Structure formats: C-alpha cells, structure tokens
Amino acid sequence: MSKYQSPKMSVNINAAKGVVIGIIILILIGVVATASVKIVDSGHRGVLLHWNAVDLTQPPLDEGLHFVVPFQDEVVNIEVRTLKYASDARSASRDLQTVETTVTVNYHPDKESVHRLYKNLGLDYENRVIQPAIEETVKQVTAKYNAEELITKRPLVKQDIEAAITERLNQFNVVTDVISITDFEFSPLFAQAIESKVEAEQNALRAENDLRRIEVEARQREANAIGLANANIAEAKGEAEAIAIINKALSENPNYLEWLKTQAWDGRLPLVVGEGGTPFIQIPMQP
C-alpha cells in the first residue's frame, strides 16, 4: 500500500474490481448461454453445423428450443412449408413453332433430408435446381408435340411435364406438391392460323350436320309417299275385290240387287211414285 493511499480508498478500489469482475462473469455466462440455445422457427427444420460443417449423422432438428455446444455448433433454419416458384420458359414445338410457357411449381423441401439439401445446394436451391428443371423439362416435352397438339392434348402435355419435373427435383430432396401450366402462348400469326382452322372445321361440321338432316328428311318424305301409295293401292284393290264379289253375286242371284236396295232404304215412302209403284222422285218428308 502506498504511503499516500488511505485504507478507505484501497477498500473502494477492491470493491470496484470485484464488481467489474462480476459483471464480466455475468456477461460471459450470458454469451455462453445464448450460444448454447438455438430456436428452430415454426414451419422450419434446423440443420446442425459443427464448425460450419453439416452433420449428416444428426437428423434435422424439429421446430422449438434446442441446446448445442456453444461456439462450436450452429443451426440453420430452412423453411419446409409449401413454397411457390413460377418460371417463364421459351421453347419450340416439333413443327418449330415458338412457344411461351408459364409453369408454376408448388413444392417443399423434404423434411427429413433438409440437411442433405443444404449440404449440396445451400439456401439458393430455387435458382440452382428448380428453375433449370422447369426450363429443360418444358423444352424436352414441347419438342415431342406439334403446336396444335400442345393445345388439343394439353392434359397429356401437362402430365408429361409434371412427371419429368417431379422426378428431377426428387433427386435433390425437393418434393413437388402441385405443378400448373398457366398458359401456352404462340406467335400472333400462328394463333390466327389455328383460329381459322378451328372455324373452318366448325363450318364443315355444321355443313355435314345439315346434309345429314336433309338426307333424313328426304327419307322421311320417301317413306310417307310409299306409305300413301301402298294405302291407295290397298284401297283400290279392296274396291275391285268388292265389285268382283257383287258381280259374281248378281250373276248367280238376280234378286241380290233388290236385297241391296232394301239395305240402303231408310224406311220412308216417296210422295210421288211412277208406274208399277217405282219411285222416281225422292222427296223427303218434313218431320
């Protein structure tokens, strides 16, 4: 102790040193505690790093609180909820028509393999694998169809694109949920040609339907005419047979004519009769 330093001052200095040391210890404890506790956000999985190296032996960490070795271990959060990526792809059909296609992919990283995804691709895997997968797949699939088939066989084209993109992304531990082809766009000249062709086909179909209707109506009129002719022939044949029967009856029995008269008589007597009682003027009697 200096001869100029009082005992009271020496005690104050020692106390101050103790406070400073205590504060430093608390800070160190806080830093160590903070470095030891990691939180994985909701809808995410955590990739555990040992000295910035991915530990593939350790499965991805679930969302919540986790304790790690301070200063050695680090946790990277990767979102595993359904994400959306849209890309415009330019390609050519089999008949060399330029096609603009918009493809939207809803996907999510494989929850059990996000550590492998991070090790191989990092966090920028959309631009590294998803966009190239869409562009290359669209080019490969559209090259199998001509431009008209891309329109008329749209469900089949969509199915081929979906299968190819799904298979390609699964190799990188990315799971596809829904793949949508929102549009196929062609050059204005080709679109006009397609429209004209569709209109011509519709007109041809309408003309064919009209021709079928005319043929059906003609067959109906022909059937009606044949039916009417057959009816007239049957009626004439019946009358001829009736006349033949009457002539035969008259030749065999002269009194048959008188019998016919009695069948046609209404039971009224004429007012004026001729010679022999035969009526020559038929005058109806008033009631």
Rank of each mutant, 00 (worst) to 15 (best):
37 V>D: 00
283 I>G: 03
236 A>Y: 12
79 E>Q: 12
139 K>N: 09
220 Q>W: 03
125 Y>N: 00
71 F>S: 03
286 Q>Y: 11
42 S>R: 02
85 Y>G: 03
193 A>H: 02
176 T>F: 08
105 V>G: 06
196 S>L: 13
59 P>T: 04
187 S>Y: 07
22 G>I: 13
275 E>T: 13
220 Q>V: 11
46 G>Q: 03
225 A>L: 11
219 R>W: 04
34 T>L: 11
75 V>L: 03
55 D>F: 05
29 I>S: 02
28 L>R: 00
92 A>M: 14
281 I>Q: 06
214 I>K: 06
222 E>M: 05
103 V>Y: 07
91 S>K: 00
187 S>R: 05
178 V>Y: 10
37 V>R: 00
48 L>T: 10
52 N>W: 11
259 W>P: 05
41 D>P: 06
169 L>K: 02
113 S>W: 09
173 N>C: 08
108 H>R: 04
62 D>C: 06
50 H>S: 02
145 Y>V: 10
125 Y>S: 00
246 I>K: 04
135 E>Q: 13
154 R>K: 12
274 G>N: 02
228 L>Y: 03
101 T>M: 15
49 L>D: 05
74 E>V: 09
232 N>T: 12
247 N>D: 07
6 S>R: 05
71 F>V: 11
252 E>D: 15
216 V>D: 11
151 I>D: 11
13 I>D: 01
122 G>A: 06
130 I>K: 00
167 E>K: 08
137 T>R: 02
257 L>H: 00
58 Q>E: 12
259 W>E: 14
76 V>Q: 02
285 M>N: 06
250 L>C: 03
221 R>D: 13
177 D>A: 05
208 E>T: 07
160 D>Q: 15
55 D>S: 14
192 Q>N: 00
27 I>D: 01
187 S>G: 07
283 I>T: 15
154 R>D: 12
154 R>F: 14
13 I>E: 09
133 A>Q: 03
129 V>F: 02
106 N>K: 07
178 V>R: 13
40 V>T: 05
94 R>V: 07
25 I>E: 04
3 K>A: 12
130 I>M: 04
199 E>F: 07
181 I>S: 07
32 V>S: 11
192 Q>I: 02
24 I>Y: 07
198 V>C: 03
86 A>S: 15
36 S>V: 10
43 G>Y: 11
